[in-house]
């Protein structure tokens, strides 16, 4: 069985791995690199639970092949906090009870961070459409939207 050799930068660390041609980036993260924060909710790019940032773009890691990541930079939920310091989005998700079961939370946080990085002061509608690629079945999204609004306020020094 031959694997494909891949080098990439993941959460700032240089990583090398072997993977099969059919393995997705999500498979690689979860099964080969032990980064299980990204979840497989659908495997078809419909739920966003596997969201990561690939070379600065938010992607569903289930729709990217592990071999495609050669030379790329990947950010996952495991790299969001800086040491002991949570990102304001993580803090606000906790303070606003924006999670119930929490399975969608890593994907929402990655998507919300990508949204705020691109648009630091989004309207409620921009938040709702910015997060429309992520499914949550527990919360009805109300507390998630409020948490993102609060995080934006904090990041902007409000």
């Amino acid at each position: 069985m031959s694997g494909l050799a891949v080098s990439a930068t993941i959460n700032g660390d240089e990583v090398e791995y072997l993977c099969q041609a059919e393995e997705t980036l999500l498979d690689v993260l979860r099964n080969r690199l032990g980064l299980t924060g990204a979840k497989e909710g659908c495997g078809t790019g419909d739920c966003g639970a596997c969201s990561v940032v690939l070379d600065g773009k938010l992607v569903c890691s289930c729709l990217v092949l592990g071999a495609e990541v050669q030379g790329a930079t990947v950010e996952t939920i495991e790299g969001m906090a800086k040491g002991d310091t949570l990102h304001p989005l993580q803090t606000k998700f906790l303070e606003h009870a924006a999670l119930q079961c929490g399975i969608c939370t890593p994907g929402f946080l990655m998507a919300a961070k990508a949204l705020l990085d691109a648009n630091p002061d989004p309207t409620e509608e921009e938040i709702r459409f910015g997060l429309a690629g992520n499914l949550c079945r527990c919360t009805g999204y109300d507390k998630i939207v409020r948490a993102v609004q609060a995080a934006a306020l904090e990041i902007n020094g409000g």
């Binding site: 299980t36 924060g37 979840k39 949570l86 993580q90 906790l94 009870a97 929490g102």
Partner: peptide
């Protein structure tokens, strides 16, 4: 009252272990 949940930090950092983890 409305304190932060005890399993919260694990769930916003990707450390919480679900069925497939």
């Amino acid at each position: 009252t409305r304190p932060v949940r005890p399993d919260g930090v694990d769930k916003v950092t990707g450390r919480a272990r679900y069925g497939a983890d």
